Amino acid sequence: MRYLPAVVVDALLVLVFAAIGRASHDESPAGFLLTAWPFLVALLLGHLLAALLPARPRRPWSILWGVVVWVVTVTGGMLLRVISGDTAQVPFIIVATLTLGVFLVGWRGITALVRRNRSRAATTHAEVEDAGVEDGTVEDIATGPDDEHPVA
């Protein structure tokens, strides 16, 4: 079940990609599933491949996992489009590759930054507590030994 949230986020982003693409060509956004289905199938294959790789990334929200999913989604999605009789023109391949890269790897990068910042904040909070400060407030840190006069 730990894979499900990442799969859901990725699938929603693929749907957004397809809807934006349809709308940008003045096509009915309602038909976005026709554009999205090959990429959704490839997305699931990408998650499966990432989970089965021998030296696989361990977390579905990791950047490396996202890169595997991205490459398989773009490659597989384009192949499925062509096999099903649709086109895969070079400009579409470029736009899809860049957009899906930003979407599928980008949210993982943001997640990594947030987790790193939380970790640093927790470490800083622990260091403040280890220094004997009760709640880490500026007043506690800035008081002198007699706790009545702030340290200049």
Rank of each mutant, 00 (worst) to 15 (best):
D146I: 13
D10A: 10
I141L: 10
P57Q: 05
V90W: 12
T111I: 14
S28V: 04
V151F: 10
T99G: 09
P145N: 12
F17E: 05
R56N: 08
R58W: 11
R108L: 05
G106R: 06
T87W: 08
P38A: 04
A122C: 05
L53W: 00
V74L: 01
T143I: 14
R115T: 14
R56T: 07
A112V: 06
L52C: 12
M1R: 13
L40V: 02
G77D: 06
G66T: 06
A23C: 10
T35F: 01
L43C: 01
R108C: 03
R115M: 14
L43W: 04
P5Q: 03
G21P: 02
I93G: 04
G66N: 07
R116A: 13
W70P: 06
M78S: 14
D130I: 14
L44I: 05
H125T: 15
L113D: 10
V16S: 03
H47N: 04
D147V: 14
V95E: 11
L113W: 10
W61R: 11
F39R: 00
A142K: 10
G109D: 07
I93R: 02
L80G: 07
S24K: 11
E139I: 09
E139Q: 13
L4R: 12
R56C: 01
I110D: 01
W37Y: 05
P91C: 06
V68G: 00
R2Q: 14
L15W: 09
G85T: 01
S84V: 06
S119I: 02
S24H: 10
V72I: 04
A96W: 00
R22T: 02
R108F: 03
V90T: 14
S84T: 08
R115V: 15
A96Y: 02
P29M: 15
A131F: 07
V151E: 13
D130W: 13
